[in-house]
Nucleic acid binder design. Structure first.
Lengths: 220, 220
DNA sequence: GCCCTTCTCCCCCGTCCGGCGGAGGCGGAT
DNA sequence: ATCCGCCTCCGCCGGACGGGGGAGAAGGGC
């Protein structure tokens, strides 16, 4: 058995405790070597640029530049970028989707046991075909398209206007909306007019399109 | 160092060659044990039921019951189901989404090297928090919702009608559509009427809604 | 108290839309 | 050769829609 070169790892986390813990776990493995640490996203970028590790364990929540943006910069500017594992606390963290989208090789929960961490590092160092193949990345991009930050106009709609827009998106006419909301047709027209103005659309069809594009209907 | 119980693996693939190759790779590892094989999805279900392995390597394309349905049945009927790694040839195989949705612990490309395979088996045997957390599963479910089998009416639309519907979904008026398609406004009206009839909607707004709901616009 | 927002409702008017029926040409299928 | 589906257009009609006004009542914040 020859002794292959160890997998070189950089840790990026703003909490020293976490870095220490990760280092302790990884250093116990002879085939893993922690070659550097960073406490901010920006620092992570420069450290990675300098040390050229094989794997980066990147916390998502960091001061200044967050882990996602750091990941994006690393993957976007280096010729042979390292595999980046994004570390989160909650698995349905919205950052997860961003991580996938920008090309993270995988992600890891902070509550994962030492074994999973070690296995994960070894795995991503050797292959990217298991964790997040292109198909999943596509999925994340689609998710981002489907769930963009709601446009400014959403916040500007009053409760009544939202309700009217929702019913417009159900395909109802003004008269039907009026009946279901138990108000006069003229009232509905007012609300519709307000919706059109605030959404910057000229007719109900465009308003409904805007509602769909903005993910306004998510939840029904 | 104690010797922990080996990870018990079942292989499900309709090609004997593949099973043999996988067995050869996994058997070389002292901590992995291939305890059974199956050549069809249905066989996989019964073998797994009997042998209760820790991990299943499941091919997606198999005669009779495919890997997805087998995965579904295994995960749905056993109390402590094994981790299932779905094996595909192409990473943007549409099966990938189905695999995620039904709860596969991960998936693997057939072209993966032996090392990645071994690491993957070890990893999923110990944890499910890295590969496909609940968030990704949610994503896959959303994908399934967003890409349902297109309703019957889609197939019934003529080319021209599709084009008109697409432009309706861009928020254009009949006159605008006519200009962009370089036909008369009356022609557009005919197409619109045909679209409304075939989609079973009464106005353009409802037609656009139907287009969105049917995922008719995926691709733009 | 005053202002602002929201919700309610009214008027008129011009436009757009969808339903109806009809028609001609063109190409593929039988 | 005949038929059928598709694409192209025409006119007419009624209703829905959206823009332009205005106005009163209720509630909260300053």
């Amino acid at each position: 058995m020859t002794r292959p070169a160890p997998i070189r790892v950089v840790l990026a986390d703003d909490e020293r405790m976490v870095r220490t813990a990760l280092r302790a776990i990884l250093s116990a493995e002879p085939d893993l070597e922690v070659v550097g640490e960073a406490a901010t996203g920006a620092e992570a970028v420069s450290v990675v640029r300098e040390l050229r590790p094989d794997v980066v364990l990147m916390d998502v929540r960091m001061p200044q530049t967050d882990g996602i943006r750091a990941t994006e910069q690393i993957l976007g500017t280096l010729d042979e970028p390292p595999r980046i594992i994004v570390v989160t606390t909650f698995e349905n963290d919205s950052y997860v989707y961003d991580a996938l989208r920008v090309g993270a090789a995988g992600f890891l929960l902070k509550r994962s046991d030492a074994d999973a961490l070690v296995q994960a590092v070894r795995l991503v160092a050797r292959s990217d075909s298991l964790l997040f193949p292109a198909a999943v990345r596509t999925l994340a991009t689609a998710h981002a398209r489907a769930h963009p930050a709601p446009p400014a106009w959403v916040a500007k709609l009053t409760g009544r206007e939202r309700e009217v827009l929702r019913r417009m998106a159900d395909g109802l006419t003004n008269a039907e909306i009026a009946r279901r909301m138990e108000v006069g047709p003229a009232t509905v027209k007012s609300h519709v007019a307000a919706v059109l103005a605030k959404t910057g659309t000229r007719d109900r069809t465009q308003a409904v399109i805007a509602a769909y594009e903005a993910g306004f209907l998510n939840g029904r």
